[in-house]
Write a protein that binds this DNA or RNA. Structure first.
Lengths: 157, 157
DNA sequence: AAACAACAGTTGTTATAACAAGTATATGTC
DNA sequence: GACATATACTTGTTATAACAACTGTTGTTT
């Protein structure tokens, strides 16, 4: 008489693996929301900040960093680095130039503004991250870091 | 003589907290990519699957689940549940109806197709998750789950 | 050195996420 | 019982993510 289909029994009790994914995702999502809010002070998104930071850290010789390397060092997949960098050029944070030797490559460098942005945001971000985890002991943080890295290495196989 | 600004020394060495965020984000991003690939077989996105699963699990009485509750049970922030559900109505996976008593509330229920989708995808997803972590011992998985939850609770304060 | 494959970026398109403002209903207060 | 406030959802708009096809350059093979 009812049009209600019977739901299978097994769905609903979630495995330890599911719990781990759910927690890791929630954790990174919640933290990202706070990082996003903080970075909005400077008009940056987390992705833009990360790209700036990659260039800042890697481009010691001020020769510029290829788009592909920037993409590979961001810790989420980014299918469209070109337009991510386009917007950062428009904002005056980076400059781009074709590599003279390998003309396929485009190298990005920070402008003074871009450099200042990375330096301004760094300490507040570090503080936010520390605060987020200040209820964990050093042992717990080390254990968590180790376990996440172990989990991650398989994910990247 | 060079127009190169001096980069501050401190940036580049990352704290244990940064490492944790980076690993957690990479881990969930990589896993999500695989989940996305798997779910694309049925034409679902991870977010859509999660919404379907929420309704499947919560709507025991087939009275429908309010949009707000669906949103709150998804483990990422979703600012636009209405249109997420719109698309699922269009695809024939759910139906929506205004609550008779509280007319502000809209309740979503699974169609037979929606129910079949959840049931079809569940086992392959569980298998994927298990495989992703099969190089961790039970103790490690339990420890990871516990630590992530502890980290998460602060993030949600 | 011509042909083919690989590589690094670019561009076009569509769908979705994010943010903000708006609408209808319900609840609380005086 | 009018009025302010809160709630649940909707709608409008803009920016970005995702996917695929394409261009120009370099490397490899014969």
């Amino acid at each position: 008489m009812s049009n209600q289909r019977k739901r299978k029994a097994k769905i609903g009790t979630s495995s330890i693996e599911s719990e781990i994914f759910k927690s890791a995702t929630s954790f990174s999502d919640q933290t990202l929301a706070q990082v996003n809010e903080l970075l909005s002070i400077w008009g940056m998104t987390p992705l833009q900040y990360n790209a700036l930071r990659v260039i800042y850290v890697e481009d010691k010789q001020d020769t510029g960093i290829p788009s592909k390397e920037i993409g590979s060092r961001l810790y989420t997949r980014v299918p469209d680095v070109t337009r991510l960098l386009d917007r950062m050029v428009d904002k005056g944070w980076i400059t781009r130039e074709r590599d003279k030797i390998n003309k396929r490559v485009v190298r990005s460098r920070l402008t003074d503004i871009g450099m200042e942005l990375v330096e301004s945001a760094h300490a507040p971000l570090a503080e936010l991250e520390t605060k987020q985890l200040d209820h964990l002991s050093d042992d717990e943080k080390n254990a968590l870091s180790t376990l996440l890295n172990k989990a991650l290495n398989k994910a990247l196989d």
